[in-house]
Design a protein around this nucleic acid. Structure first.
Lengths: 128, 128
DNA sequence: TTGCAGTAGCGAAAGGTGTCGCTACACTCT
DNA sequence: AGAGTGTAGCGACACCTTTCGCTACTGCAA
């Protein structure tokens, strides 16, 4: 019972997505090199995971060239947003931005990030 | 291979935690009523899930009384924070508060929440 | 005391994730 | 042609999550 557009990536899938976001479109070799460095898993495993992710629509690949080139089918931003929406939904069931921020309070942020956050808040205040 | 203090709740476990956060300490009957309303699962299933969650330390129970009373072993806030930290770690590998905010930008926030966010940013700026 | 209702628990099984071994195909290079 | 190297994929398996059926215990009512 899998919902249509909302295939949340699992742990390893997310690791692969992160690698793709960082590296950009890459052949399996390169993805595997990173993944193996972190987890020590086999080449076959990486390949299989990519295959599974293909069926879930999490990645796309160019089969014209050889080796095939894989790329993430979702952007980092979109994925993050999806996670957050689900998090708020699951944990707070409803909008609770202030609580999320509260949770973030412990983490350190650079001056630049804080500035940007302020700008964003200003923008949010304007609309809606 | 499960890390020591970081037992991330699975999907159903999270649903149960959410129910407990909302209801407060409750007997299985009450938890099950909610869960069954959402998923239509059996009483045995709820009971088993609670048992599993006991071994993981996600819930605690008072066995003195009958029926036993279950309560969440973690607060909503702590759980949310854990999720967020993991999210940032997994998706952005490192601090990226502004990006998280970016992701949140689409969601609507009340004036009060925005105010609170501003106050929080001020506080964060002060320290560290 | 027997029977019923509510409660607790165990063990099995179904489904999903992550892992790999083994096979096959292509493309060199000799 | 044959050997060697890089690439792709299938099928099996181990492990975890989620599900339930069946059993057992408790306490109260007939």
């Amino acid at each position: 019972m899998r919902e249509l557009g909302s295939t949340q990536p699992t742990a390893v899938e997310l690791e692969i997505l992160r690698i793709l976001w960082e590296l950009g479109p890459s052949p399996v070799r390169r993805i595997h090199a990173r993944l193996a460095a972190e987890k020590g898993t086999n080449y076959s495993t990486t390949l299989k995971m990519l295959a599974v992710m293909m069926t879930k629509g999490l990645v796309k690949r160019d089969e014209e060239v050889s080796p095939h080139i894989y790329r993430a089918a979702v952007t980092r931003e979109r994925a993050a947003k999806k996670f957050l929406v689900e998090l708020i939904d699951k944990v707070y069931e409803g909008s609770a931005m202030s609580l999320v921020l509260q949770a973030l309070a412990g983490s350190k942020a650079s001056q630049a990030e804080i500035e940007e956050a302020r700008r964003l808040l200003d923008a949010m205040e304007g609309q809606s």
